[in-house]
């Protein structure tokens, strides 16, 4: 009897492997394999010089050295982080405010379903098409400039995309619009998880809404805020569609909106595989480290 039971158990465990097999086969073939070969290519010199292919020749870490000394890696990292922060800071502030309002039982806001639907919508819009739309609306003789002139606010058209502040501002604005609804919903879920008796107790003690927010909501929300910040940073490092389309891949003006993935994309297109490989490995190390942080948050929550 016992033996029979044990046998049955073993035969079921086989099904676990069978059900997981497609995922791991496809992942190994299309992601893990290419990741490892990317590591491999990063130590070879391999690029196009005119119509001739140079290499592949083994060069060790030369591509990495080149990346840090000759390229504009630092500049593009800076661009990426600045544009991410310009979008993220207003995003987290607005989302905190909205989430606090939506979950406040005393405020009883009407139409919160409608507002949530509206603010989440930009997240599902095709980023490239959204960027193209913003480019068209803000072009030198586009509707926004016409509106400003018709309203008498300006007399000459503003060249938004010729200035660093204008281009970065528009990219940050799009990132903000695309992500603040998502963040609001995540923070709401976090706030609804807070024990309501804490709020009631604070109210009995005569705390103002701001005090409640500062002393109860914020401290209890810290883990989810950190999670939102880290996942947003991972997303920010992948910033590509919006600046690529807005600036037609040039990262203008004067490459001040060129992001890391745009840089990678340029290397892939010019077939400079050695440099593309080295850049990919650096990006992998950074996002991998950040992924460990996310993993820490998730496994901590799952334990509770």
């Amino acid at each position: 009897m016992y033996k029979n039971k044990k046998k049955k158990h073993v035969s079921y465990s086989k099904w676990g492997y069978i059900f997981m097999l497609p995922f791991f086969l496809v992942y190994s073939f299309f992601s893990l394999g290419p990741l490892l070969s990317t590591f491999y290519y990063s130590v070879f010199e391999n690029y196009m010089s005119g119509l001739n292919t140079i290499g592949p020749n083994f060069v060790g870490f030369e591509n990495y050295v080149k990346l840090f000394t000759e390229g504009d890696l630092l500049k593009y990292t800076q661009n990426t982080l600045i544009m991410w922060a310009l979008g993220f800071i207003p995003q987290i502030l607005v989302s905190l405010l909205l989430a606090a309002w939506f979950t406040n039982s005393r405020l009883k806001l009407r139409g919160s379903g409608f507002f949530k639907t509206v603010i989440y919508m930009p997240n599902l819009i095709m980023a490239s098409a959204f960027s193209m739309l913003i480019f068209t609306l803000f072009s030198n003789n586009g509707p926004v400039n016409m509106l400003l002139q018709q309203a008498g606010i300006t007399t000459e058209s503003i060249h938004f995309l010729s200035s660093t502040a204008g281009s970065r501002g528009l990219i940050a604005l799009m990132n903000f619009l695309m992500w603040f609804g998502n963040t609001t919903i995540l923070l709401m879920a976090g706030m609804m998880g807070i024990d309501p008796s804490l709020f009631e107790a604070a109210e009995v003690d005569g705390a103002t809404p701001f005090q409640v927010f500062q002393r109860i909501t914020m401290p209890l929300l810290r883990p989810i805020l950190a999670y939102v910040a880290v996942t947003s940073l991972i997303g920010g490092l992948q910033m590509f569609d919006v600046p690529q389309i807005l600036t037609n891949g040039k990262g203008g003006p004067d490459r001040t909106t060129m992001t890391l993935i745009m840089y990678l994309n340029n290397h892939l297109y010019s077939k400079n595989y050695g440099m593309a490989g080295a850049l990919s490995v650096i990006l992998f190390i950074i996002t991998g480290a950040l992924s460990l942080v996310v993993f820490y948050f998730i496994s901590k929550q799952r334990k509770n």
């Binding site: 290419p34 070969s37 990317t38 990678l264 990919s280 990006l283 996310v294 998730i298």
Partner: peptide
């Protein structure tokens, strides 16, 4: 393993992917 790779962007293996 799945949790760890969840937030690693596909772009970092793009080079190998193109070659493959």
């Amino acid at each position: 393993f799945i949790l760890l790779i969840m937030t690693i962007p596909t772009q970092v293996s793009a080079l190998g992917f193109v070659k493959l």
